[in-house]
Amino acid sequence: MSSGTLARRRAGGRHKKRRGRPAGLWADAWHDLRRRPMFVASVILIGVLLLMAAWPSLFTSIDPFDARTCELRLARQTPTPGHPFGRDNQGCDLFARTVYGARNSIVIGMLTTLATAVIGGLLGLLAAFHSRWADAVLSRVTEIFFAIPAILGALLIASTFRDSEVDSILLVVFALTILGWPMAFRIMRAAVITAMSQDFVTAARALGAGPWRIMTRHLLPNALAPVIVISTINLGGFIAAEAALSFLGVGVRSPDISWGLMIAEARDRFQYAPLPLVFPALFLSVTVLAFIMLGDAVRDALDPKLR
């Protein structure tokens, strides 16, 4: 990894020279990323998954929400033409269910990532930039949240509100956000504090820039990269967490489809009917892996120091 990064930095350097003017952080990173096979592979995978989440009907003509497509008497049938993954324990088409399962996983992963980045990022910026008092309070609060084991905490929140009429998908997002935002907070706060000690901030201040201008023009752009990196990596983690909650029965609920739910439904008969468990598990692993790979690549490109 380190030699690759070195090569990348050299390449970046050459690039700058060729273009004759210094490239910005983002252009540089993009140039760097395009050449990394890991990045390209993960982007292709994620592209397919996003397509699957947005238009699952492109992949299968069977609507898994139509109970008429389920044939209980054919339960656990192994793959046949038209049913490439076979059928699950209820006799429903496994491929269609797996494809439609992508949507909830990806929607939950993205919404949670967005929510944690926005909440954690804003609070981090405020804590670092504002009074010491606000910083102390917010930092202690995040420490409290850090002390809660994530899955256990999410389990508690999700099970507490599960009887309410709240949509089960939003509930999962809510539970994971509550426990996930401190990470973004810490990263943002550290990055802002580092940026604040830079000369250009002092210069801006000396030139009479107000706090709003300093925050938006100088601090935020310089502190954004690490938050984006950590969020991308966490996205995979949130998808896995959603599957865990659904598996435990407090996440997405039937008749909604989720990979975690499918795994839970298939586990008791795994010994003699492994496919209904294997396929959603495979999709889940590949998705999580793709997002983590993407996060890794973005991190290397944006912030070589983090390696």
Binding site: D66, A67, R68, C70, L72, N89, Q90, C92, S254, P255, E265
Partner: peptide
Amino acid sequence: HKEWMEAVANNLRA
């Protein structure tokens, strides 16, 4: 009961 209740629900839906 989950599995058979799911099956009954699918019957009624279909």
